[in-house]
């Protein structure tokens, strides 16, 4: 009794396969948007997606108790209205007035992402939360303490039981539930998507921008995910404060010096500031970097950028028009991903 949603409806990403009446989780089928590639690996293959698991993951995502002092839930730095990035922040704020050392990425379409972090250091969505939870300049907690807090909450005991069959709360279950929530966030209903589906059309400026994009940007920011998930050096100067050499730290290979993951450009108008350290505050500044700012003497500079990119002022404007069509307000307003706010409580 799978209920099929014909065409593209706003909230059709989850198709209930309510084939399990009575107790036990209600399993869900993760839906791949029409025309999109299948993820290289199925993140739900060993973490079967269920409504109960998703709801538990959502509660954890919005729960400050995952941080040392209660002030830093995942959602503190990954805000839905900012496409689950830190809106208008180059670095996010961590415990005890600290800064992170990289710009928080938007969390969407993670089911397609082969490796997490700007340097690809985290190889599976399920183990991703371990980094921010334990980092002293983020949530500053330790796993054992988080689990002890959760076990004291009878609501969690009930939710873990609903999701996993027994009330046992352990790190694996917590991490799998978080992955069910974050991995379910899909952004596929921007104006660009509607144009692809024939439900809308670009303005002349947007269309010019799209054509320019396809000719000059899409080899790295590959449609439809707007990234090829590769690691590349796009010619930024090394920040003397951070001395961040990116992927080289993970691989130990000099050829990876200054390489960072190509970010998706979906929702790019919401995820400013830009680059791994948030140094560029506007789309215009990013385009200016590609046409005149690239440091062409870095040995690991991406071969596609050695001559910089020739972009006229008109093309720049058109490109910005196009990039704004990648904003998906369906996702940023989807109540399914929102913290349930109870007004007038206590």
């Amino acid at each position: 009794m799978i209920s099929l949603c014909a065409g593209i409806a706003l909230f059709s990403l989850f198709i209930s396969a309510g084939n399990k009446p009575g107790p036990g989780p209600t399993y869900l089928q993760f839906k791949i948007p029409a025309g999109w590639p299948k993820p290289a690996t199925d993140i739900f293959a060993k973490n079967r997606l269920s409504e109960e698991g998703f709801q538990l993951g959502k509660k954890l995502f919005y729960d400050g108790r995952l941080s040392k002092d209660g002030n830093f839930p995942c959602a503190g730095c990954h805000q839905q209205f900012g496409a689950f990035a830190s809106y208008d922040h180059d670095f996010s704020h961590g415990y005890n007035n600290t800064f992170t050392t990289r710009n928080a990425p938007g969390l969407f379409n993670l089911a397609w992402m082969p490796a997490m972090h700007w340097d690809g250091g985290v190889n599976h969505i399920e183990v991703q939360p371990l980094s921010p939870i334990t980092a002293p300049n983020e949530m500053a907690e330790n796993l054992d303490s988080v689990l002890r807090k959760l076990r004291k909450d009878t609501t969690y005991l009930r939710l873990f039981k609903a999701a996993f069959g027994t009330p046992e709360i352990n790190s694996q279950r917590m991490l799998k539930a978080l992955a069910q929530f974050t991995g379910s966030i899909v952004s596929s209903n921007s104006k660009y998507d509607k144009v692809q589906r024939g439900e809308a059309s670009f303005t002349p400026g947007e269309l010019n921008g799209y054509n320019f994009f396809k000719a000059n940007c899409a080899s790295c920011h590959k449609e439809p995910l707007f990234t090829d998930y590769s690691f590349r050096n796009n010619g930024l100067a090394v920040s003397p404060f951070l001395n961040d050499y990116g992927r080289m730290k993970i691989t130990g290979n000099k050829a990876d010096s200054l390489k960072f993951k190509v970010p998706s450009l979906r929702n790019v108008a919401l995820t400013f500031p830009y680059m791994h350290d948030g140094r560029l505050y506007s789309l215009g500044a990013v385009i200016d970097h590609y046409r005149s700012g690239i440091i062409t003497t870095q040995p690991t500079l991406d071969p596609l950028l050695v001559n910089r990119v020739t972009i006229s002022n008109k093309e720049k404007n058109d490109l910005i028009y196009f990039l704004n069509t990648l904003t998906d307000t369906t996702m940023t307003h989807d109540p399914r991903f929102s913290e349930k706010v109870t007004y007038f409580s206590h």
Binding site: K46, S171, Q172, A179
Partner: peptide, 9 residues
Amino acid sequence: GAQTGPLDP
């Protein structure tokens, strides 16, 4: 991904 028992983080 996330493991348990001896492999628990």
